[in-house]
Design a protein around this nucleic acid. Structure first.
Lengths: 258, 258
DNA sequence: GTTGAGTTGC
DNA sequence: GCAACTCAAC
C-alpha cells in the first residue's frame, strides 16, 4: 500500500493549484524514494513536473511503485476542503481505484477524509534530459510573477534575454511596447537576490499565457529559477525547501522572421 | 524633445487614476513651464484640468510646446506596471507618435520602460475664465469623499449650500432625505480645517455621479477646495503641494421647479 | 456573468 | 490588521 503524511498540508494544496489550470489529468507516481507528478498541458505545449522526496514527508510508505491517475479539477475541489494548517495524509491500496485524502486540523479535533476516484491515464513517456543550461537566473518569485502579469497587459509574447549584466523581459503589442530589466543583484536578503550564472548570452521568445500559468506556483517559495539554452525549452523551477520542486518546461517560439 | 522626471511617480499614477473614469482620451500639453491636461468627460458634462509646474519635477525639459494625445485606459494599464515608489520619467521626441515611460525602482535594480502609442485628439478650445467665486470652501478631502459616498445611497442629486456658518450637503430620494452640515472650523491641524470664505451665500444643485468621479483624486492631497458662484460651474480643486493641482468643473442643475 | 483570490491602500 | 478593489478563473 501507499501512505504519505504531510504536516504542511498546505504545500500539497498549493502544488495542485499550481498545475490544475495547466493539466486536466495526471498521474501521481510513487516509489519508495519519492512522489512525483509529470504531465503535459492539454494543448501539449508545456510540461509540468513535481518531485517530493520521501524524506520530506512526516511519514512515507510505498510498498511498490504505483500510479494514481487523477483529475486535477476534482482533486482541487477536495483539497479546498482542507484547511491551510491541516495535516494531509494520502492513502491508496495497491489495487485501489480511489485515493483517500485525510485532513486533520491542528488540534486534531476535526478529522475529515475524502475519497477521490482514480482513473487510468496513459503515462506519456517523458524523457527530460538533465542538461546544463547556458543561463540560469534565480530571482524572487514574486518579482517574476509581477513582470509576467505586467507584460501581459501589452501583448501575448515575451522575449527573455539574459546577459551577464541582467535579464530583460520584453513585449510588444497594439498599445505599445514594454521592457523590464533586472540587474544581477546580490541583495542582502536571499529572497531579494537576482543571481545570474551564464556561459553565453541567451535570448528566447515565449507565450506569456503559459509563463503566467507557471506563476501559480509563486506561493510555494520565495525564489524561482529560470534555466535557458538556445532552442530548447526553458525550465521554470520553484524549489520547495528541503523537499523537492515543481518545474515547468516551455518550448520557445521560433522566430520565422530571422 | 520632451523629458520629465518625477521622483514621486506615485503622483502621476494617481493623477491618471483620478481622470480615467471621467475621460477616455486627452492631451498632455507641455510647455517649458508646465505640463497640463485638459479634457471634458465623455458626455460633455464636466471638465477636468491638471497642472504640474515644471519646477515640481526633478528634471524637466521641453524644447517646444507639444501635445501628446493618449487613451487614459491604456495609460492606466501601463502605469499599473510602475510601483508606487518608482521614479517615473516621461519622454517624447518632438515628432514622436509614442510616449516613453520609464520606471526605476528605488534601488535601481529594476528598470522598466514602456512605449505608449499616441493619438491625435482634437483639442477642444477650453476657455476657463479665472473668476472670483462668491464662496470658497476648503475641507479635508477624505471628508468630502465620505459625504459624497454617503449621500449617493439616498439619491443622485445633491444640493450644496454655503453660508458663513458652514456648508450643507443635502440629498432627497425614495428612501428618505439626508443632510450633512460642516461648520467653519479652524482646527489645529491644517488638514482637519473647514475654512469658508464667502461674500454671499450660494446654493447649487449637482449630479452626485460626477462629484463621485471627482473624489477619485482624494489620495492626491489632504484638502479639497470647492468654489461656487450662482449659475456657474463649481470648481472642485485638489491642490498638489508645491507642484500644481487637479481641478474639476461641473455645471449646476437648473431648478425648473422654482 | 458570477465568484474567488490576490493585491493594495487606509 | 482590515477592507476595498481589481483581476482572473470558472
Amino acid at each position: 500500500m501507499f501512505e504519505a503524511r504531510l504536516t504542511q498540508g498546505k504545500i500539497f494544496k498549493q502544488l495542485i493549484e499550481a498545475l490544475k489550470d495547466l493539466v486536466q489529468d495526471a498521474n501521481i507516481d510513487c516509489s519508495e524514494d519519492e512522489l512525483s507528478i509529470q504531465a503535459m498541458d492539454s494543448s501539449h505545449v508545456s510540461l509540468v513536473q513535481v518531485n517530493l522526496q520521501a524524506g520530506g514527508f512526516d511519514h512515507f510508505r510505498c510498498d511498490r511503485t504505483i500510479s494514481l491517475g487523477f483529475n486535477s479539477t476534482n482533486m482541487s475541489k477536495i483539497l479546498k476542503c482542507a484547511g491551510n494548517d491541516d495535516v494531509i495524509t494520502l492513502k491508496a491500496e495497491d489495487t485501489a481505484d480511489a485515493l483517500t485524502l485525510m485532513f486533520e486540523s491542528p488540534g486534531q479535533d476535526r478529522i475529515a477524509d475524502f475519497e477521490l476516484k482514480l482513473m487510468d491515464i496513459d503515462a506519456e513517456p517523458l524523457g527530460i534530459p538533465d542538461t546544463e543550461y547556458q543561463c540560469t537566473i534565480r530571482m524572487p518569485s514574486g518579482e517574476f510573477q509581477r513582470i509576467i502579469r505586467d507584460l501581459q497587459v501589452l501583448g501575448d509574447t515575451c522575449v527573455i534575454s539574459c546577459t551577464k549584466e541582467g535579464v530583460r523581459f520584453s513585449v510588444s503589442g497594439d498599445l505599445g511596447t514594454g521592457n523590464v530589466l533586472l540587474r544581477n543583484n546580490a541583495a542582502e536578503k536571499e529572497e531579494d537576490q537576482v543571481i545570474i550564472e551564464m556561459e553565453e548570452p541567451v535570448e528566447l521568445t515565449f507565450a506569456l499565457r503559459y509563463l503566467n500559468f507557471f506563476t501559480k506556483a509563486t506561493s510555494l517559495g520565495g525564489s524561482v529559477i529560470l534555466s535557458m539554452s538556445p532552442e530548447v525549452p526553458v525550465v521554470v523551477e520553484y524549489p520547495i525547501e528541503e523537499f523537492g520542486h515543481i518545474k515547468y518546461y516551455l518550448a520557445p517560439k521560433i522566430d520565422d522572421d530571422a
